[in-house]
Design a protein around this nucleic acid. Structure first.
Length: 427
RNA sequence: GCGGGCGUCGCCAAGUGGUUAAGGCAGCGGCUUGUGGUGCCGCCAUCCGGGGGUUCGAAUCCCCUCGCUCGCCCCA
């Protein structure tokens, strides 16, 4: 295939798909506005070090999934694989946090060099929020509620909120020690990959998909049991808030997020309707990240939703209900023939647009029959026809395309009358 | 990085060794030089993702390669 085509995992969004995307975008904008979040936009390209330091050198994302290259100034640059590190960087760089806590949201493309599959591409889109400078357990619940309500408002079904607490770094270190000791005693019972991970990333073993390993793990110590009293109380406070909000959740003691910066509350919202990549929203608290990136110690919580996955869910919902948003159809289709008429049609189209109408102007110069056929097919309710005769008389022909064949409705009007007529919704 | 499935026109799709590769949709042109939804006619892949091989002969068999797709891993 020597035809030019997009890079692997980079997909085009075609006009037909855009109405659904726009509906989703409008929905989250409105949702965020009502929650007093403010939008922030950051560059797609950042210095590599931002992600190495923020997300963690040992993570899969940093270790093997980033688009990293040298720019012409010999700087190591990386296409952002997620939004949180960039938002924190921007907040620090511009001193946003010195103005108090910040509730921020963002959306845009992210890049991860992975093997594409259902619900996963190399360039994909996320929408997310980052609440910087909020430590109260209520902020965890508030953030989760915003995600939950957004998904509910979009009507996606089959959702489940999975919740866990990772504790603070000291809790995690204590747990890690306990878990490694426990695993070492049962090394022979684990699959090969999990055995490797005992030394590299033992917490991740808990996520193993291997059924035999899972059976062994059923008895493993739980992170929850290694939590300090303070961490445990904090987690319980978050749970009480969710209960007050009547947001159902299930505890997932095995839930370990893949980015190093998470602390305390970690959660995922999954859908049974997504195939293998079932997570539509993931997030949690990252109380250490801001300090890690050079700021003062600052508590924070955030999440991200994968838009391709959300679109998939909404499309399923709509396919079932039969109400996919569609591409808008013009109000008026303008047909003309003859040099003078064609020029008048051009001018009239602009006037109609300035008056707020959606206008498609036929520029083909083909026979009236052809132009009217296109007018009909495009779905517009009205056609305006300007021929040589009309052009000379300074009138236009307004045709009602929705009339049946036996009572063709057409009317000669002066352009000013036409503008008034089409501008009036009562016709 | 590792597995499975697939690859014929913009889209859907027949064809599975034999001379010119069905059909439908969309598109374009036409059917008494200016009037639409139907209808009719015509045009629209010298070529079957690409390369090599087997064969008298391949889109149909074999090999390689690229791509798409689903899954593993990981994540949103």
């Amino acid at each position: 295939m020597d035809k030019l085509q997009s890079l692997r995992g980079m997909v085009d969004l075609l006009p037909e798909q855009m109405p659904l995307w726009q509906l989703i975008e409008a929905t989250f904008r409105s949702q965020f506005e009502r929650a007093a979040l403010r939008e922030i936009r950051t560059p797609l390209l950042e210095v590599t070090e931002l992600f190495a330091r923020g997300i963690g050198e040992a993570t899969d994302v940093v270790g093997k999934e980033m688009y990293t290259f040298q720019d012409r100034g010999e700087r190591s640059c990386t296409l952002r694989p997620e939004g949180t590190a960039s938002v924190v960087r921007a907040a620090l760089q511009h001193g946003l946090l010195s103005q108090g806590p910040q509730r921020l949201w963002y959306t845009g493309p992210m890049f991860r060099y992975e093997r594409p599959q259902a619900g996963r591409q190399r360039q994909f889109h996320q929408v997310g929020i980052e609440c910087l400078g909020f430590a109260d357990p209520r902020s965890d619940a508030e953030a989760i509620a915003i995600a939950w309500d957004l998904l509910s408002e979009l009507g996606v079904g089959g959702l489940a909120l999975e919740l866990n607490s990772l504790g603070d770094p000291a809790d995690r270190a204590a747990y890690r020690t306990a878990l490694v000791a426990w695993l070492e005693e049962r090394r022979e019972l684990l699959d090969a990959e999990s055995r490797e991970r005992i030394s590299t990333n033992p917490l991740r073993i808990l996520d193993s998909k291997n059924p035999d390993t899972q059976a062994v793990l059923a008895e493993a110590p739980l992170l929850i049991d290694s939590l300090s009293d303070a961490s445990r109380e904090r987690f319980e406070a978050v749970r009480r808030c969710l209960e007050a909000l009547e947001i159902p959740y299930q505890l997932s003691p095995r839930l370990v997020r893949g980015l190093d910066y998470y602390t305390h509350t970690a959660f995922e919202i999954t859908s049974s309707q997504l195939g293998a990549q079932g997570t539509v929203c993931g997030g949690g608290r990252y109380d250490g990240l801001i300090e890690q990136l050079g700021g003062a110690p600052t508590a924070a919580i955030g999440w991200a939703i994968g838009l391709e996955r959300l679109v998939l869910l909404c499309a399923q919902r709509d396919a079932a209900g039969g109400a996919l948003p569609t591409v808008p159809v013009p109000d008026v289709y303008v047909v003309s023939r003859g040099e003078q008429a064609e020029r008048q049609a051009l001018v009239l189209s602009r006037q109609l647009r300035q008056a707020g109408q959606m206008v498609e102007l036929d520029l083909t110069g083909s026979a009236f029959g052809k132009q009217l056929k296109r007018a009909d097919r495009c779905g517009a309710p009205w056609a305006v026809v300007i021929g040589e005769g009309e052009a000379e008389q300074g009138v236009v022909l307004l045709k009602d395309l929705r009339r049946s064949a036996d009572s063709p409705e057409e009317e000669r009007l002066r352009p000013v009358e036409l503008l008034r007529r089409l501008g009036d919704p009562s016709i």
